[in-house]
């Protein structure tokens, strides 16, 4: 099982590295567990800076493959190379304009009593302007970890949704006005939309499990109380010391308390790392509803996020 996982991980790593170099325009050849990448001068300059010249790289992705290819670079999930490529990719893919294909909506008849009949009268399709932001949330206490939260806001209604990019992936394409129209005009400015998302994220943070912060806070309190006691005893022992020495003691105490604060005080750093303007399809279908001799027209609005009658 472990070996299987390892293999899967190394395959994913290989796939990521290969995708990256393909995207920068390098020649990529994957043969016999070895990935060969060759960059010409222009590509190398684009990737590494104006001083760079073309070069060739050979990668293997599993410890076992190193033996046969001792000159090759071993690239694993946490290795320097992946770290570098991850940073590069993150820097190069920060902002985009995309659209979701209407295929992401599976139109369905509204729920209702069994004896209802619906006749589709007309359908209309347009696009809603959304703003999606991925935030990096760094939780810092006695330890530090990070999470990514992606939220999207409807720039007309101001409603906020949590996004899962992986599930959207098959439906995404670059935004083209001629293809993705009509796009409704945004009523909320970029600034306003951004603030709504930030506020929504803060709200989510306040609602989640706080155990980690309670733990860090308790630790901080204990450390600071120990430190204060120590300095109190020192002050007692130095009762007859001059005011300069006493002042120095106070300064040291403040310094050490501040260091404790930096080490243990629980805090969350929020930083937006990716933003996308998304045209989200909206399907408006008018039905004739027939039930027990009574007829009425109803309108069903489908979006990837909600249905509205």
């Amino acid at each position: 099982m472990a070996h299987h996982l390892e293999l899967e991980t190394s395959l994913e790593t290989a796939s990521f590295v290969s995708s990256f170099y393909k995207l920068v325009g390098a020649k990529v050849l994957f043969e016999d567990k070895v990935l060969k990448v060759s960059l010409d001068d222009a590509t190398a300059k684009r990737l590494d800076g104006p001083w760079a010249r073309g070069y060739e790289l050979t990668f293997v992705f599993h410890d076992e493959d190193v033996g046969e290819h001792s000159d090759a670079e071993l690239v694993t999930m946490g290795s320097y190379r992946v770290h570098y490529l991850v940073q590069q990719a993150i820097k190069r893919g920060r902002f985009t304009k995309i659209a979701l294909s209407p295929a992401c909506i599976t139109p369905a008849l509204p729920d209702g009593p069994g004896n209802c009949r619906y006749y589709q009268l007309k359908t209309a399709r347009n696009y809603l302007p959304y703003l999606a932001i991925s935030f990096n949330c760094a939780f810092v206490g006695a330890s530090r970890w990070e999470e990514i939260a992606t939220l999207a806001v409807d720039r007309i209604s101001g409603e906020v949704y949590e996004l899962n990019w992986a599930r959207l992936l098959p439906y995404i394409s670059a935004y083209r006005p001629e293809q993705h129209s009509p796009l409704q005009k945004a009523e909320l400015s970029f600034c306003r939309s951004y603030r709504i998302l930030e506020k929504a994220l803060v709200k989510r943070l306040t609602q989640r499990d706080r155990q980690w912060s309670e733990k860090a806070k308790t630790r901080l309190k204990k450390e600071q109380s120990d430190l204060s006691q120590y300095f109190a005893k020192l002050a007692e022992e130095a009762m007859y010391a001059d005011s300069k020495a006493k002042g120095e003691l106070e300064r040291m105490k403040a310094l050490r308390l501040q260091e404790q604060e930096e080490r243990f005080a629980p805090r969350v750093y929020l930083r937006p790392v990716q933003a996308a303007l998304i045209a989200i399809p909206r399907l408006e279908t008018t039905y004739l509803k027939a039930q027990a001799g009574r007829e009425e027209q109803i309108k069903v609005i489908d979006t990837p996020f909600s249905r509205r009658f």
């Binding site: 990521f16 991850v86 990719a89 190069r92 893919g93 985009t96 995309i98 991925s134 990716q274």
Partner: peptide, 13 residues
């Protein structure tokens, strides 16, 4: 930045 880079960045994350 283009959808390709954007999605690669997501993968990177």
């Amino acid at each position: 930045d283009g959808w390709k880079w954007f999605s690669l960045a997501q993968w990177a994350h």
